[in-house]
Design a protein around this nucleic acid. Structure first.
Lengths: 229, 229
DNA sequence: CGGCGACGTTAGCTGTAACTAATATTGGAT
DNA sequence: ATCCAATATTAGTTACAGCTAACGTCGCCG
């Protein structure tokens, strides 16, 4: 063992694998899915999974299906926590556009010390959600599970509140959503839902917005119980 | 060539070598000095210097003496710039203690994007000095040269203003200086300078402080022209 | 002027984490 | 039942940047 900058317990690469596993469901994730997500080759994944398995962070099933162990899941959630705290910080304190914060956090999450993370968290007042509405895991790696529905599933005439927008990796998409008012917290009403053709007409903040199904994919709502307008 | 995260023009390690070269005077730096400073072995240095020479960032003289080229010096100053901006940011915005900011910046300087650096610089109002009083190079890599004198050289009875405290790598030392009021901007008067025995008595902000020569090493002053007690 | 010690270099390894090419496995369609 | 295509694995390589051990080259001291 040679040691240069105090090798971290979980290397940068490992952190990315764990995070990807968690976001891919955490259980029975195929090698190919991981490879696609991380943009690496399948052999690289097989290799890394073997190492992670050795370290008891994942468990390997048949046909390469990987599942996070309890400690792997915790580690993954802690990476997610840093990521989301950083996004919040970048948006609120440094005033970056919400379409930019994802890629910046993607890099920083691996390099910011505990000490600085604590200061960052203080500076944004211990938020529970990031700018895209994703819940922020607590410092023990507990990630609140929420049951949300896709906006496209909202019945005609119903109201709902946008809770979370997924797919923050694509800045252009976020920019489009922001322009039409599709941000967490926005109140929307489904005016017309043509599910067959995939065309939806919504009222967002008093404005009519028409969108295709792909344009809405990832926008998640919490159904308003009292909302049968 | 394999490329994972868009290999930076100048790798982390290179940046550290360049910065160390600049701080070691930038010209005719012996291998051994670099090795000591960076905490690596001599062969590692020889190796890296060869690569840097190939990239025209340094020039190699006889007996391994390394000198920065113009572009190497610029690159080094830009690393220093990031470092000092980060220190300022960490101290002023995240309110870390000035004894902690150095080591945090040491890591972050390699991983913060241009975009975020710009936002950071804005958030601290484009400072020209870091918390330890070091000048911050401009965005073209120009580093103002200042002629400062060590505090220990101040004649008895003279006044001066502390300009810069060097040696910020050692948090304990910074903490001691801060306790005795030796921070950039402090007004001091040399009450008694026993240079032979290396004992100095100073007046700092109305308080008498006695210190040995080592305890003052790195505290730099700008002589007050009108300051003959 | 011979040799010692400091300094530097060469050679060869280590570890991480990627890659390609070739091979094995496996599940579904014929 | 067989074969194909998708999926996963094995084997071998690459790049970076560190390491140790061994060797070379000065300069100076005696």
């Amino acid at each position: 063992m040679q040691e240069q900058p105090t090798r971290p317990a979980v290397s940068r690469s490992r952190q990315n694998y764990l995070k990807a596993l968690l976001q891919l469901g955490g259980a029975a994730v195929p090698v190919s899915a991981l490879a696609r997500r991380l943009g690496v080759s399948a052999p690289s994944v097989t290799n890394m999974l073997a190492r992670l398995a050795e370290e008891r962070l994942v468990e390997l099933g048949p046909r390469g299906a990987a599942s996070l162990t309890a400690s792997g899941e915790r580690a993954a959630a802690l990476v997610l926590r840093r990521h989301r705290l950083l996004e919040t910080f970048l948006a609120r304190v440094l005033e970056l556009d919400w379409s930019e914060v994802h890629e910046e956090a993607e890099e920083l999450e691996h390099h910011v010390s505990e000490r600085v993370m604590d200061a960052i968290e203080r500076s944004v007042g211990h938020p529970t959600e990031d700018p895209h509405g994703h819940p922020i895991p607590d410092r023990h790696g507990r990630l609140p599970r929420r049951a949300l529905a896709p906006l496209a599933a909202l019945p005609e005439g119903s109201r709902a509140r946008v809770c979370e927008v997924r797919g923050g990796e694509d800045p252009a998409r976020l920019t489009r959503w922001k322009r039409s008012g599709l941000v967490p917290g926005a109140e929307v009403r489904m005016l017309e839902a043509n599910s067959d053709e995939g065309v939806f007409t919504l009222e967002i903040g008093g404005r009519r917005v028409v969108s295709g199904r792909e344009g809405l994919e990832g926008v998640m709502i919490e159904r308003r119980p009292r909302g049968k307008a």
